[in-house]
């Protein structure tokens, strides 16, 4: 979204740069205030130390857990669950979205059911899933996959719906095979919406992950958080939260980068 720079106006460029910096800085105000509130709450003992640990303790726990390799182990366990679910749920969502987007008949058959099912929160699935999938990995992967499928399918569908009909006509004129239509036209045209769906899916995946890891786990970030609570080490819970946030931001950035690389053919001022 870079606004095209006007040549010969260097002062304005500096100004724009400053303004951007200020914009970024403003975003830090709220976290800084929250951090200040946290420090104050700890110092004034608004909450017992067993409930709200000091930031320094959280930092110390983070370092200790990292140094012992425990944190990486938990992170890896969670990441692999999220990875598998994104692969399974993401491809299911993509196929579903494409099918409903490209075939009017399939859409008529599938969409009403899909619409209803997608209204259930994932947590509502858990009791049923436990009966079918037990409490092991299968439960975790299937629950997260469901959470992933819905946003991916919805956004794929939306992305296809937003493609100008003219483009389909062009495909017909060129006598594209269905595969060519999907690969050469639909996917690139729907890419922004697709990535939007994927980013939502990643967020949903992490949310669900933490919940399912509260059930019968022996590793993972969600497990670390429950464990911290059981042992009255709330610093571990906060470490888990910080970590989930950090991983979420990193994944989002990665997806944005991937997206801009994939759609690099687009003119920059879209």
């Amino acid at each position: 979204m870079t606004p095209p720079l006007q040549p010969g106006k260097a002062g304005s460029a500096v100004f724009t740069g400053l303004r951007r910096f200020a914009h970024a800085g403003v975003g830090l105000v709220l976290p800084a205030l929250l951090y200040g509130l946290w420090l104050l709450a700890v110092e004034r003992r608004w909450l017992p130390e067993q409930i709200l640990p000091a930031p320094s303790l959280v930092w110390q726990s983070l370092q200790e857990l990292w140094a012992s390799g425990e944190l990486q182990g938990h992170l890896l366990a969670s990441a692999s669950r999220v990875g598998w679910s994104l692969a399974v749920g993401g491809s299911a969502g993509l196929l579903l979205g494409l099918a409903m987007g490209l075939s009017r008949t399939l859409r008529d058959y599938l969409f009403p059911s899909f619409d209803v099912v997608s209204q259930f929160p994932v947590l509502g699935w858990i009791p049923l899933l436990i009966i079918f999938a037990g409490i092991d990995e299968a439960l975790k992967i299937s629950a997260i996959s469901i959470a992933v499928t819905v946003p991916v399918a919805v956004n794929t569908l939306k992305g296809i719906g937003n493609i100008p009909p003219a483009l389909f006509e062009v495909c017909r004129v060129y006598r594209f095979t269905p595969w060519q239509v999907v690969r050469r036209m639909v996917l690139p045209a729907a890419a922004p919406s697709l990535f939007n769906g994927l980013r939502q899916a990643v967020m949903q995946a992490w949310l669900t992950l933490v919940f399912v890891e509260l059930l019968a786990s022996s590793e993972g970030i969600g497990y670390l958080m429950v464990w911290g609570r059981q042992l009255a080490q709330l610093d571990l819970v906060i470490v888990g939260m910080v970590l989930i946030g950090a991983v979420g931001v990193a994944l989002d950035l990665a997806l944005r980068t991937l997206e801009s690389w994939l759609v690099r053919w687009r003119p920059p001022a879209f």
């Binding site: 017992p48 067993q50 409930i51 609570r229 059981q230 042992l231 009255a232």
Partner: peptide
């Protein structure tokens, strides 16, 4: 027991 600890910590 852990829940009891939380209850006690909260007074």
């Amino acid at each position: 027991g852990p829940a009891l600890n939380e209850s006690f910590a909260n007074g």
